[in-house]
Computed example of a mutant assay.
Amino acid sequence: MGVPKRKRSKARNRRRRAEVMRIEAPNLVRCPQCQELVRPHHMCSECGYYKDRVVRANEA
């Protein structure tokens, strides 16, 4: 069984973890109605449209 020869420093461990667990920014697409940036396959929070139909009426 492998045994480490030296203690791994906290900074070295954290640097390695930060590289592995990096969070990526979500992909965004333009809403076909209002051109607002929205997540793909989600309703537009600005106009309430999803796939060219109204899902939520706009409270104005």
Score class of each variant (00 low, 15 high):
Arg56Ala: 08
Gly48Cys: 10
Pro4Ile: 03
Cys44Pro: 08
Ala57Met: 13
Arg30Trp: 01
Lys51Val: 05
Pro32Ala: 04
Ala57Val: 08
Cys31Arg: 01
Glu36Met: 06
Asn58Val: 11
Val55Asp: 05
Lys51Asp: 15
His42Ser: 15
Ala57Pro: 02
Asn58Arg: 12
Ser45Cys: 00
Gly2Cys: 05
Val55Pro: 01
Val55Gly: 00
Met21Glu: 14
Ala11Glu: 14
Ala60Leu: 14
Cys31Ile: 00
Pro4Ser: 05
Ala18Met: 08
Glu59Gln: 14
His41Leu: 03
Pro26His: 04
Val54Met: 15
Asn13Asp: 05
Glu19Phe: 11
Glu59Asn: 11
Met21Ala: 03
Pro40Asn: 09
Val29Asp: 01
Arg15Phe: 12
Gly48Asn: 11
Cys31Ala: 06
Pro32Asn: 08
Arg53Gly: 01
Arg39Trp: 10
Pro40Thr: 03
Ser9His: 02
Glu59Ser: 11
Met21Gly: 03
Tyr50Gly: 02
Arg17Asp: 13
Asn13Met: 06
Lys7Ala: 14
Gly48Ile: 10
Tyr49Gln: 12
Cys47Thr: 03
Val3Gln: 06
Gln35Leu: 13
Met1Arg: 01
Cys44Ile: 04
Lys51Trp: 02
Lys5Gln: 11
Arg22Phe: 09
Ala25Glu: 13
Pro32Met: 05
Asn27Pro: 01
Pro26Val: 05
Glu24His: 00
Asn58Lys: 13
Val38Lys: 14
Val54Lys: 15
Arg53Pro: 01
Arg12Cys: 09
Ala11Gly: 03
Arg53Ile: 10
Ala11Thr: 10
Pro32Ser: 07
Arg39Ala: 15
Asn58Asp: 08
Arg15Ile: 10
Ala18His: 05
Gly48Gln: 09
His41Asp: 15
Cys47Arg: 03
Arg17Val: 04
Arg16Val: 07
Asn58Leu: 14
Gln35Pro: 00
Ala57Leu: 14
Gly2Met: 06
Ser45Asn: 07
Val20Glu: 12
Lys10His: 07
Val3Ile: 07
Pro4Asn: 06
Lys7Gly: 11
Arg22Cys: 06
Ala25Tyr: 03
Arg56Gly: 02
His42Cys: 13
Arg56Leu: 07
Arg6Asp: 11
Arg15Val: 10
Val38Asp: 02
Glu24Ala: 03
Arg22Leu: 11
Lys7Ile: 14
Cys34Asn: 05
Tyr49Lys: 05
His41Val: 00
Ser9Phe: 06
Arg30Cys: 07
Arg17Pro: 00
Gln35Trp: 01
Glu19Asp: 03
Val3Lys: 05
Arg8Met: 14
His42Gln: 10
Val54Tyr: 01
Asn58Ala: 10
Leu37Asn: 06
Tyr50His: 13
Glu46Asp: 07
Ser9Ala: 10
Arg14Ile: 05
Ala57His: 07
Arg17Gln: 09
Met43Gly: 03
Asp52Glu: 15
Arg56Trp: 04
Cys34Lys: 04
Tyr49Trp: 15
Arg30Gln: 08
Cys31Pro: 06
Met1Lys: 00
Glu24Pro: 00
Arg30Glu: 12
Arg53Thr: 13
Ala60Met: 06
